[in-house]
Computed example of a mutant assay.
Amino acid sequence: MTTNNPLKVLYKEVNGSKITTDVYLPPSQASSPQKYPIVIDIHGGAFMLGHSGMVSIPQVNDCLDRGWIVLVPNHRLCPGVNLLNGPMQDIRDLLSWIHDGSLDAILKGQGSYQADLENVAAFGTSSGGHLALSLGFGVKTPPKAILSLYGAVNFSNSLWWKELPHVAAKLPKDLSPSFLQRVYDEFPIPTDSSVSLEGQTESGVSKGPDFSKPRDAFAFTQIAGGTVLDAIYPAGQTTDREYDLVDPARNVTADFPPTYIVHGQSDTMVPIELSRQFLGILKDAGVKCGMTEVPGEEHTFAAMMEVGSKTWWLQREGFDFLEGIIGRGPQ
Rank of each mutant, 00 (worst) to 15 (best):
T2Y: 15
T3H: 12
P6D: 14
K8P: 11
Y11E: 12
Y11D: 11
E13F: 12
T20K: 14
T20F: 15
V23N: 09
Y24L: 15
P26R: 09
S31P: 07
I40N: 05
I40K: 09
H43N: 07
G44A: 08
M48D: 05
M48K: 09
M48R: 03
L49F: 11
L49I: 12
H51S: 08
S52V: 13
G53K: 09
V55S: 07
P58H: 06
C63S: 14
L64M: 10
R66H: 07
G67W: 12
G67E: 04
V70I: 13
N74H: 13
H75W: 05
H75T: 10
R76K: 05
P79E: 03
G80R: 08
N82E: 10
N85I: 03
G86R: 07
Q89A: 12
D90T: 03
D93A: 14
L95I: 06
S102E: 11
D104R: 06
D104P: 13
A105M: 13
I106L: 13
I106M: 11
L107I: 06
K108F: 10
G111T: 12
S112M: 03
A121M: 03
F123C: 04
G124N: 07
S127R: 00
H130N: 14
L131K: 00
A132R: 05
L133Q: 02
S134I: 02
G136W: 01
G136E: 01
G138C: 00
V139G: 07
P142W: 02
P143N: 00
P143G: 01
Y150P: 01
N154M: 08
N157C: 04
L159S: 13
W161M: 09
E163T: 11
L164Y: 04
H166L: 09
V167G: 06
A169E: 08
K173G: 04
L175Q: 02
S176K: 06
Y184T: 02
P188F: 04
I189S: 04
T191R: 07
E198N: 04
Q200R: 09
V205A: 10
P214C: 04
A219F: 05
T221K: 09
Q222T: 09
I223P: 02
G225L: 08
T227P: 10
I232P: 00
Q237L: 11
Q237A: 09
Y243I: 00
R250L: 11
A254R: 05
P257K: 07
P257D: 06
T268W: 11
V270S: 08
P271S: 07
S275N: 08
L279V: 13
I281C: 00
L282C: 05
A285M: 02
M291W: 01
T292L: 09
P295D: 14
G296Q: 14
E298R: 15
M304I: 15
M305Y: 14
G308C: 10
K310W: 12
T311R: 07
T311P: 11
Q315S: 09
I325R: 05
I326P: 10
P330T: 07
